[in-house]
Deep mutational scan, measured.
Amino acid sequence: GATAVSEWTERKTADGKTYYYNNRTLESTWEKPQELK
């Protein structure tokens, strides 16, 4: 079946920190989402 992984995108802030952005829920998080573990 379909997985939720594609909803999350790994992004970088202007100062180079990595965060994760969810295209479906429009939420962002510093922690790696469960779906990516």
Rank of each mutant, 00 (worst) to 15 (best):
T9H: 09
T9G: 05
Y21S: 03
K37E: 14
W30D: 06
T9W: 06
T13F: 03
P33C: 03
N22G: 00
K12N: 05
R24H: 08
T18D: 02
D15P: 01
Y19E: 04
T3A: 14
S6R: 09
D15I: 03
R11D: 02
E35A: 10
V5G: 12
G16N: 04
L26M: 15
E35S: 11
D15K: 05
Q34M: 12
T9I: 14
K32P: 08
K37N: 14
Y19A: 01
T25K: 02
T3D: 12
K37R: 12
K37L: 15
L26T: 10
E31K: 07
T25Q: 01
L26V: 03
W8M: 01
D15T: 08
L36H: 07
K17S: 07
T3W: 09
G16R: 01
T18R: 06
W30K: 04
E10A: 07
E27W: 03
T29I: 08
G16M: 03
T3N: 13
L26S: 11
K12L: 11
T13R: 03
W30H: 05
T13D: 12
D15S: 10
D15L: 06
Y21M: 04
A2I: 14
T3M: 12
Q34G: 11
E10N: 02
K17Q: 10
Y19I: 04
T25M: 01
L26W: 07
T18Y: 05
R24L: 11
S6I: 10
A14K: 11
A4K: 08
S28M: 15
R11K: 13
T29E: 03
E35F: 06
K17H: 09
Y19R: 02
G1Q: 13
W30M: 07
Q34D: 15
W8R: 00
W30P: 04
E10S: 04
E10G: 01
L36A: 06
K32R: 12
S6G: 13
G1Y: 10
A2G: 14
Y21K: 03
K37D: 14
N22T: 00
R24Q: 08
E35Y: 06
T13Q: 04
L36V: 07
A2R: 07
N23P: 09
Y19K: 02
G16S: 02
R24E: 05
Q34N: 12
Y21E: 03
W8G: 00
T29K: 08
R24P: 00
W8F: 02
W30S: 06
T29G: 02
Y20M: 01
L26H: 15
T3Y: 06
T29V: 14
L26P: 00
A4V: 15
W8N: 00
V5A: 15
N22Q: 01
Q34S: 12
E7F: 08
G16H: 03
R24M: 09
E27I: 08
D15R: 05
L36S: 06
Y19N: 01
N22W: 01
A2M: 14
E31H: 10
T9A: 08
Y19Q: 03
N22M: 01
E27T: 07
S28T: 15
N23M: 14
Y21F: 15
K12P: 02
K12G: 03
T25V: 01
K32S: 04
E31D: 11
E31S: 08
S28I: 15
D15Y: 08
Y19T: 02
K12F: 10
K37W: 14
L26E: 12
E10P: 06
A4L: 12
L36M: 10
G1N: 14
T25F: 02
S6E: 11
R24V: 12
A4P: 13
S28N: 05
A14F: 09
E7N: 07
E27K: 08
K37V: 15
T29M: 09
N22V: 00
T25L: 03
T25G: 01
W8P: 00
T18V: 13
E31V: 12
G16T: 00
R24T: 08
E35I: 06
N22E: 00
A4N: 13
E31G: 04
E10R: 04
K37G: 15
L36T: 06
D15Q: 08
L36F: 12
E27P: 00
K17A: 08
W30I: 05
T18I: 14
A4D: 13
E31R: 07
A2T: 13
Y21I: 07
K17R: 15
T13V: 02
K17G: 05
A4Y: 06
V5Y: 11
K12A: 06
Q34P: 15
T3R: 07
P33N: 02
T9S: 12
N23K: 11
A14N: 08
A4G: 12
Q34V: 12
A14E: 11
A4F: 06
Q34K: 10
G16I: 00
N22L: 01
E31N: 09
V5K: 09
N23Q: 10
T9L: 09
V5Q: 14
A2E: 13
T13K: 03
G16W: 02
K32F: 05
Q34Y: 10
G1D: 12
L26R: 14
K32M: 12
N22D: 01
E35R: 04
N23Y: 11
E7I: 05
E10Q: 06
E10Y: 04
E27R: 06
R24S: 07
T9E: 15
K17E: 08
E7M: 05
V5D: 12
L36R: 04
T29W: 05
P33L: 02
T13H: 03
W30F: 15
A14L: 10
S6H: 11
T9K: 05
Y21C: 05
T3G: 13
R24N: 07
T13N: 07
R11F: 11
V5I: 13
T29H: 05
W30L: 07
E35V: 08
N23L: 15
N22I: 01
E35Q: 09
E31A: 08
N22H: 03
S6N: 13
T25R: 02
S28V: 15
E7H: 08
K12V: 13
L36N: 07
S28L: 14
K32I: 11
N23I: 15
Y20V: 00
E10D: 03
E7R: 03
E10V: 10
K37Q: 15
S28A: 11
Y19H: 02
E31W: 07
E27M: 09
L36G: 07
E35M: 07
E10T: 06
T3Q: 13
S28D: 03
N22K: 01
S28W: 15
A14D: 10
W8H: 00
Y20W: 15
L26D: 10
A14M: 09
N23R: 11
G1S: 14
R11I: 11
E27N: 04
S6D: 10
S28E: 11
Q34H: 11
A4Q: 13
E35T: 06
A2L: 14
S6K: 09
T13G: 07
T3S: 13
R24Y: 11
K12Y: 11
Y19M: 04
T3E: 12
A14S: 11
P33H: 02
K17M: 09
W8V: 01
P33I: 02
A2S: 14
Y20F: 08
E31L: 10
D15H: 05
Y20A: 00
P33Y: 01
L26A: 11
T25Y: 01
Y20Q: 01
E35P: 06
Y21W: 10
K12I: 12
Y20G: 00
E10M: 08
Y19W: 06
G1F: 13
R11H: 11
P33D: 02
Y21A: 02
K12W: 08
S28P: 03
T3V: 13
A4W: 09
Y21T: 05
R11V: 11
T9N: 06
L36W: 09
N23S: 14
P33F: 02
K37A: 15
R24I: 14
Q34T: 12
K32A: 07
G1K: 08
